[in-house]
Amino acid sequence: RNRTTFTSYQLEELEKVFQKTHYPDVYAREQLAMRTDLTEARVQVWFQNRRAKWRK
Rank of each mutant, 00 (worst) to 15 (best):
R1W: 06
R1A: 11
R1N: 15
N2F: 07
N2K: 05
N2G: 11
R3T: 15
R3M: 15
R3L: 14
T5R: 06
T5P: 08
F6V: 11
T7A: 07
T7L: 06
T7Q: 05
S8D: 11
Y9L: 12
Y9E: 11
Y9M: 11
Y9T: 15
Q10S: 02
Q10C: 03
Q10G: 03
Q10H: 03
L11D: 12
L11E: 15
E12G: 11
E13K: 03
E13N: 06
E13R: 02
E13H: 01
E13W: 04
L14C: 09
V17Y: 10
V17Q: 15
F18V: 04
Q19V: 11
Q19L: 12
Q19F: 10
Q19I: 08
Q19H: 11
Q19S: 10
K20P: 01
T21I: 07
T21Y: 09
H22L: 05
Y23N: 13
Y23W: 08
P24H: 01
D25R: 01
Y27N: 12
Y27T: 15
A28P: 00
A28V: 12
R29D: 00
E30W: 13
E30I: 04
E30V: 05
L32H: 03
L32F: 03
A33K: 07
A33P: 00
M34Y: 04
R35W: 06
R35A: 09
T36I: 12
T36Q: 03
D37A: 11
D37H: 11
D37R: 14
L38R: 03
T39H: 07
T39D: 12
E40P: 11
A41Q: 11
A41R: 07
A41W: 06
R42A: 14
V43E: 01
V43T: 03
Q44Y: 08
Q44N: 14
Q44P: 01
Q44H: 13
V45F: 15
V45M: 10
W46F: 03
F47T: 04
F47W: 02
F47A: 00
Q48L: 10
R51L: 05
R51Y: 04
A52L: 07
A52M: 10
K53N: 13
K53D: 15
K53E: 15
W54F: 11
W54C: 08
W54I: 14
K56S: 13
K56L: 10
